[in-house]
Design a protein around this nucleic acid. Structure first.
Lengths: 110, 110
DNA sequence: ATTATACTTAAGTATCTGCTTTAGTATTGT
DNA sequence: ACAATACTAAAGCAGATACTTAAGTATAAT
């Protein structure tokens, strides 16, 4: 559907804000309404809605409105993709250090 | 030194840009000069310098200038912290799903 | 000594972000 | 019916971001 690059742009951008991370923190405990998410944040409700829009645009969160209440929940797929991107780079970095270690080891008596 | 929250702000913000992720991609293969990092990017050198400044401010990259050449390398600690933040939330989310599964299991014969 | 290389600094600009306030709409409770 | 609740839409604004070009500095090569 979307290029991996664009997904990561949106995901990391979404995670770069402390209010949005607080919302994610709340949502990993289970679904919550917009008001629930707003309660701990020192911010107007429209402000919270805008953060929610960013989280939904990134695919990290989905929501559904029933009656007058919108219920939000985590969608872990994008979270995994972001985690995996980082893990992959760390692994590459460490693999390189290992190779370097072996090389230094093999040449230490030269 | 810095609050975890501020570190994550800077780290995720740094990773939210595709040019900066490309720079990280290059650096996990090993150290590189500013020119090396600039080569694949369709951008002026000062533009690259500014991205590098963002990466250094986040702690994801460190650099050292020797003679007229600045050499950059990955500093994996912040990368780990970002990865860990995500992993923790995924784990919490999954733990919740498990508890929910057990609950549904225990009550399915009611 | 001159020239080329590898950044570096400064300034300018267009767009994006993270809020705000005001004014709605749709549901639900009394 | 009427009021309260739970969002939602629109507009405005200060500051941040992602570039650019032009001009400069320090080092290395010839």
């Amino acid at each position: 559907m979307f290029r991996q690059d664009a997904i990561l742009d949106l995901a990391f951008q979404a995670l770069a804000d402390p209010s949005r991370r607080a919302m994610v923190d709340r949502l990993v405990q289970g679904p919550a309404t917009v008001s629930d998410l707003a309660k701990p944040l020192a911010m107007s409700l429209p402000g919270v809605m805008q953060h929610l829009a960013v989280l939904e645009a990134s695919g990290l969160v989905v929501s559904e409105k029933i009656g007058r209440v919108r219920t939000c929940r985590i969608e872990p797929k994008v979270l995994s993709q972001a985690e995996h991107w980082i893990a992959k780079r760390r692994a590459l970095w460490e693999r390189r250090l290992d190779r370097l270690g072996v090389f230094l080891d093999e040449t230490k008596d030269d």
